[in-house]
């Protein structure tokens, strides 16, 4: 079975600094796949390679059946790319931007007019076509950007930090749009993000850390790395408290940047007991179901910090 994206042993370095190390993964047709990672994790480099913006140095990247190292030109016709910084011309209207983009992809005449009308409608921008982009809000610009990208009907949509600069409502709307696109246009969507909530809503997530792909799976599948609940304890003396808890409860206590983290079943009871047992050693204690951040901490041993 052919996947829209197949990457094997991809590595990339800027001089002596390694940006990607031996990354391998596949993306399935029609899914929304997110690369989650903090700044400097290699997301943007991976994005630039997938969008043919920078060449493949080492490893194999196959997009829609085309090997990028051999020839990236044929695949560009089928790629839709949304960059972190908008690639709209602020001095042009939304329609003029769409027309320009269509021409770059060899679309013109009546076909272009029809497509412009269609994408404006699909992205609820019908009444904004004649507005200069510089007059639009951040959320509308992002939608105009995606409308522009969808004009040539790409089979693969790649987005770099699409929610950057958007408020939570605009972000939710954007993800709704992407979900609709996957269903209605049969597009495969790959995005990069450092927003954990955003990654939670995607079909599958790849976690990147320091250029390595440390895990790939559905959000639920990734959470299965952790059994039960996560208890987090803030202590004035974490190094002394950790062995005490370990001795008393027999559980593994991890110290992550000054906070104690414990995986256990029945977190609510554990919090009650541990606070009663060591009242003077604990400033605060809480428990919760594991999140992707917990998965990240478990896999990398460090907090998910931007």
């Amino acid at each position: 079975m052919m996947f829209p994206i197949e990457v094997e042993n991809l590595s990339h370095a800027y001089g002596d600094r390694s940006a990607l190390a031996d990354v391998s993964f596949c993306v399935k047709t029609g899914e929304i796949f997110a690369f989650l990672g903090p700044n400097g994790s290699g997301k943007t480099t991976l994005f630039k390679i997938l969008t043919t913006f920078i060449p493949v140095e080492c490893g194999e990247v196959t997009l829609l059946g085309h090997n990028l190292a051999r020839d990236s030109s044929p695949v560009r016709q089928h790629l839709g790319v949304v960059f972190q910084h908008p690639s709209l011309d602020l001095k042009l209207t939304v329609t003029e931007n769409l027309r320009h983009h269509g021409h770059l992809y060899g679309i013109w005449g009546a076909d272009l007019k029809r497509r412009i009308r269609d994408v404006l409608g699909l992205h609820e921008l019908d009444d904004r076509g004649d507005d200069l982009v510089e007059t639009l809000s951040g959320g509308l610009r992002r939608r105009a950007e995606i409308a522009k990208t969808m004009l040539p009907r790409p089979r693969l949509l790649l987005l770099d930090e699409p929610s950057a600069g958007l408020d939570p409502i605009a972000r939710r709307r954007l993800l709704g749009f992407l979900n609709n696109l996957c269903v209605s246009e049969e597009v495969t969507v790959v995005l990069t993000t450092h927003i954990l909530d955003e990654a939670e809503t995607c079909d599958r997530v790849g976690i990147l850390n320091s250029g390595e792909l440390v895990a790939v799976g559905t959000p639920d599948g990734l959470r299965d790395h952790i059994s039960g609940d996560i208890v987090t304890i803030d202590s004035p003396a974490p190094d002394q408290l950790a062995p005490k808890i370990n001795r008393q409860y027999g559980c593994k206590v991890a110290s992550v940047e000054g906070m104690l983290r414990i995986e256990c079943d029945g977190g609510h009871e554990f919090v009650r007991d541990v606070v009663a047992a060591f009242p003077s050693d604990i400033r605060s204690a809480r428990f919760g179901k594991p999140t992707l951040e917990d998965v990240f901490i478990k896999l990398t041993g460090r907090r998910f910090e931007l």
Partner: peptide, 13 residues
């Protein structure tokens, strides 16, 4: 700097 060029550079042109 404004990002417009990157859209052109990944187009099949």
């Amino acid at each position: 700097r404004e990002g417009f060029l990157q859209g052109i550079l990944v187009a099949p042109v």
